[in-house]
Design a binder for these strands. Structure first.
Length: 401
RNA sequence: GUGAGAUUAGCUCAGCUGGUUAGAGCACUGGUUUGUGGUGCCGGGGGUCGCGGGUUCGAAUCCCGUAUCUCACCCCA
């Protein structure tokens, strides 16, 4: 038997209903905020992700599905959605046109990781990207929108918020932090030594007690924000406070992708196990120019669809449409004709086999049809059809027409 | 990449210290005094016991390897 590759899942009933339900309502919500659908390729040049997500990130460093195609191009299955959208944005010269562009997308992403609860090698994200607005109002808007989506599906979550600063404040801070880490080098664990090289702020997440103790006097990012980042961040918090949005300031919240700056946020849920981030995003004002576009402020987020689906309950669908069946072989042709006609206006399930009335009723019940309509010898003789309303439990005979 | 647990029917699982034709519940399917579902009763189909080696007279059961799943580290949506 050939099985799906490790960490790759099929989406079959009843999960498929959740998927469609999620997509339908989430698309509807983001459209209210002015976002338009965009589709970008699953396969992109490897250089795109190296330059956007960053070579120091785990995603690019060790999780990419990377290979040479038959033309010898170095390509990757996309590990995330933002890079492709920004590439398209620049390629179509929307940066030159200027103005505001808002896009949403959804689809599979690929990361070669060890599968775990809420973590797959092929998984789906729903994301949005907003280009052209530097204002903290857009940050607030994006957060409000994410909240609206999660609230719609009745998800329990905590919103974590942080500001990652900008090159002006982050570069010197990074140096200050690394200097500090060097000063306590011997007390830090191996993981922290590695973090110091790749993503120094990560050391604050270390679970090792010795490290935590050693890090107590470490310089914190939130005390080193420059004037403009600090203003931006506090203005955003004022809006959230005003809107009565609960959030936790988490100075250790770091987006693992290199392109983020200033506002970073994450919606986490306790119902998801270790992979508890259900949605995350932030501002990336430099990315467009990194990809050779004209500098354009931008902010976006992505939702992990599988993670969200873990927590979604699809409202029960009521009985709908007709089930048609024949009680004797001679009636099958007639049933087929009647059912085909009915299908012009209603959902119709059709049995191609002669079965007992009991069997048909059972099948109709299972198919969640509202009406069970059958034709037997009597009906055939009288040119009628017997119909039972499975909800009202009433039955009647109608003429065939 | 590291660690722990798991793998027996479509699903959830039982199968004691190795011993004859591997079981249950649910699901599926058929029947049940004449053509009545979701809720009775009886029957039926369906398993190379993840895969490959080994120990043994004999392995679902013990040993080794391997794959996959699950959870955690790590990382992130």
């Amino acid at each position: 038997m050939i099985t799906a590759l490790r960490g790759m899942k099929d989406i079959l009933p009843p999960q498929n209903q959740k998927f469609e339900y999620f997509l339908k309502h989430t698309s509807k919500i983001v459209k209210k905020y002015g976002f338009e659908f965009i589709e970008t390729p699953l396969l992109e040049e490897t250089a795109l992700f190296k330059r956007s997500v960053g070579e120091s990130s785990d995603i690019v460093g060790k999780e990419m599905y990377q290979f040479l195609d038959k033309g010898g191009n170095d390509v990757c299955l996309r590990p995330e959605g933002t890079a492709g959208v920004v590439r398209a944005f620049v390629e179509k010269k929307l940066d030159r046109i200027g103005g505001i562009n808002r896009f949403f997308y959804y689809g599979p992403m690929f990361r070669y990781e060890r599968p775990q609860k809420g973590r797959f090698r092929q998984f789906h994200q729903f994301g949005v990207e907003s280009f052209g607005i530097q204002s903290h109002f857009e940050d607030a808007n994006i957060i409000l929108m994410t909240k609206e989506i999660l609230d719609f599906f009745g998800i329990n979550y905590t919103l974590k918020l942080n500001s990652l600063g900008c090159p002006t404040c982050m570069t010197p801070y990074r140096k200050t932090l690394i200097d500090f880490l060097d000063s306590v080098h011997n007390t830090l664990c191996e993981d922290c030594h590695r973090r110091k090289e790749t993503n120094p702020i990560r050391v604050f997440d270390c679970k090792n007690e010795h490290c935590q103790t050693a890090l107590k006097p470490a310089p914190r990012l939130n005390q080193h924000l420059c004037q403009s980042c600090d203003t931006h961040f506090s203005a955003l918090r004022d809006i959230l406070d005003d809107q009565k949005i609960a959030y936790e300031l988490d100075p250790n919240l770091v987006r693992g992708l290199d392109y983020y700056n200033q506002t970073a946020f994450e919606f986490i849920s306790g119902d998801l196990g270790a992979q508890n981030a259900v949605a995350g995003g932030g501002r990336y004002d430099k990315l467009v120019s990194f990809l050779n576009g004209k500098e354009t402020p931008a902010i976006g987020f992505a939702i992990g669809i599988e993670r969200l689906m873990e927590m979604i309950e699809v409202p029960q669908t009521s009985r709908e449409g007709y089930y048609f069946g024949a009680l004797c072989p001679q009636a099958i042709d007639t049933v087929f004709k009647v059912a085909t006609k009915q299908r012009q206006s209603d959902k119709v399930t059709l049995s191609y086999e002669k079965k007992s009335l009991k069997a048909h009723l059972k099948a109709a019940d299972r198919s969640n049809a509202r009406y069970c309509a059958v034709i037997g010898e009597d009906e055939l003789a009288n040119q009628t059809i017997w119909i039972k309303d499975l909800e009202e439990k009433t039955e009647y005979t109608a003429p065939l027409d």
